[in-house]
C-alpha cells in the first residue's frame, strides 16, 4: 500500500520536475567553468576557453553551457568538441593509448627513483657503520 503511494509520488515528482531544471544555476555555472577549463581556445595560444577573452571562446562557453543545461554530461560535451576539433581541443589528454605514458611515467619514475634513493641511503648508512663504529660527537665543520 505505502509502496504504491510512494511510487505514485515519485512519478509525480518526476513529472513536475523538467529534466533541464535538474541542474540549478550555480551548479551549472560551476560545471560550465570546469568543462571550459579543459577545452582549448582554438583562436588563442594555449589558453582554455574559460580564460580567453576571445569572442569565439565566449561563444564556445555558451555552447558548453547550453549542452550542460540540456542534460548532457561533461564527457558528452567534451566529445562534441573532440568531434569538431579533434583531440587537440582537450587540454588534458585522454587516458588511452600512448597518452597513458603521460599519466604513468611520472609515478613510475618517482617509485623507481624512491627505491634507488632508499637503497643508496641504506648502503651508505652501512658503509658509515663499518667505518666508524661510534660517530664523532663534534659537529662537522666542513
Amino acid at each position: 500500500m505505502t509502496g504504491g503511494v510512494q511510487a505514485v509520488l515519485l512519478a509525480l515528482v518526476l513529472l513536475v520536475q523538467p529534466p533541464a531544471a535538474a541542474v540549478d544555476s550555480a551548479a551549472l555555472d560551476r560545471l560550465t567553468r570546469e568543462v571550459s577549463q579543459e577545452l582549448r581556445c582554438p583562436v588563442c595560444q594555449g589558453e582554455s576557453i574559460q580564460e580567453s577573452p576571445a569572442e569565439l571562446a565566449q561563444e564556445m562557453k555558451g555552447v558548453v553551457r547550453e549542452q550542460l543545461a540540456a542534460g548532457r554530461t561533461p564527457d558528452e560535451v567534451k566529445a562534441y568538441f573532440v568531434g569538431r576539433y579533434g583531440e587537440w581541443i582537450l587540454l588534458r589528454p585522454t587516458t588511452t593509448g600512448v597518452n597513458l605514458m603521460l599519466y604513468w611515467l611520472p609515478p613510475i619514475v618517482m617509485i623507481a627513483g624512491g627505491a634507488v634513493v632508499v637503497l643508496l641511503a641504506r648502503r651508505w648508512i652501512r658503509a658509515s657503520r663499518l667505518a666508524t663504529p661510534t660517530p664523532s660527537p663534534t659537529p662537522d665543520d666542513a
Binding site: P42, V43, L56, E59, G62, V63
Partner: peptide, 13 residues
C-alpha cells in the same frame, strides 16, 4: 552572429 556553425565546423580562424 553566434558563430554556432563555425564551432560546429571546428573553425580555428
Amino acid at each position: 552572429p553566434s558563430a554556432r556553425s563555425a564551432i560546429d565546423y571546428g573553425l580555428y580562424g
